[in-house]
């Protein structure tokens, strides 16, 4: 069955075109989206606004990101412009290891992150300093103390069709997929705000910060509560259950039937 590690290690081997273009359009439109709407989370917090962080971020950016995204975030053929994507986007993309990209593929893949938390924040500070965009989420929305019932309902309506009701992920078109949700509350929050890659944007007018908090609360509840029925078989639903019934259930019973009908020695 599937598991997160497998998904993390998957090698992108699909259509070689498009990643660049996809990312470019994605990040551009996120930035553009942000420019269009007022609101959003509190613009960059004080600690990531310090000049020291920004300088540190600039150094890291020039060394690791500028080859694709340009020295001044203007973008290039191999990477989109990052002007106006905001700190949230940088924290999500770098903090989940999606950036820097390992290789071209239908979509950027989650993998072990390449930068420390401190470095990620510095990068975010630098990118945010060059254009306004969604900032890092306010910690009070990440505490998992919201209304899980509201969260579960919103999750089913807005998220489950791609990510599966249990957050186990699912397929999208042309080899893309919605990943299993095993990210930190901050990254989940950021993903909703920025709409990374093909994920739609869920701005604060669509799902208010409290709604987002409720969704995170529900996901945290699921993560922390044991499955009442036992091992969940990847939360993949009837397909996994059917295979299990055939191979384990019927398999075991056939093995017993062979023993039962074999001649005793």
């Amino acid at each position: 069955m599937s598991n997160a590690t497998k998904r993390k290690n998957r090698a992108g081997r699909r259509s070689p075109l498009a990643t660049v273009a996809l990312l470019a359009i994605g990040l551009l439109s996120t930035g553009g989206a942000y420019a269009l709407i007022s609101g959003g989370t509190a613009e960059a917090q004080s600690d990531i606004n310090s000049q020291q962080m920004i300088d540190e971020g600039e150094k890291l950016f020039s060394a690791n990101c500028a080859s694709c995204h340009g020295l001044n975030l203007e973008g290039s053929e191999s990477g989109p412009s990052l002007i106006g994507v905001g700190a949230a986007s940088v924290d999500f993309q770098v903090g989940t290891g999606r950036m820097p990209l390992a290789q071209q593929g239908p979509q950027g893949e989650e993998k072990p992150e390449q930068f420390t938390d401190e470095q990620t924040k510095a990068l975010a500070a630098y990118v945010a300093s060059l254009g306004p965009g969604p900032g890092l989420p306010d910690p009070r929305y990440l505490d998992g103390e919201g209304d899980a019932a509201n969260g579960s309902e919103l999750f089913r309506i807005n998220c489950a069709m791609c990510h599966n009701v249990a957050g186990a992920g699912g397929a999208l078109t042309e080899g893309k997929y919605a990943p299993a949700i095993d990210a930190t509350p901050a990254h989940i929050y950021e993903a909703m705000v920025i709409g990374p890659q093909n994920m739609p944007v869920f701005n604060d007018a669509n799902l208010s910060p409290e709604d987002k908090r409720d969704i995170i609360t529900y996901l945290e509840f699921n993560r922390e509560s044991p499955s009442p029925g036992g091992y969940v078989l990847g939360s993949l639903g009837p397909v996994a259950e059917g295979l299990f019934a055939w191979f384990f259930g019927l398999g075991a019973i056939v093995a017993i039937a062979v023993w039962l009908t074999a001649k005793s020695n």
Binding site: A160, M161, H163, A168, G169, G170, G237, P238
Partner: peptide, 9 residues
């Protein structure tokens, strides 16, 4: 709707 909506086997 959930991703991976399938009937029993």
């Amino acid at each position: 709707v959930s991703a991976g909506t399938q009937p029993d086997w």
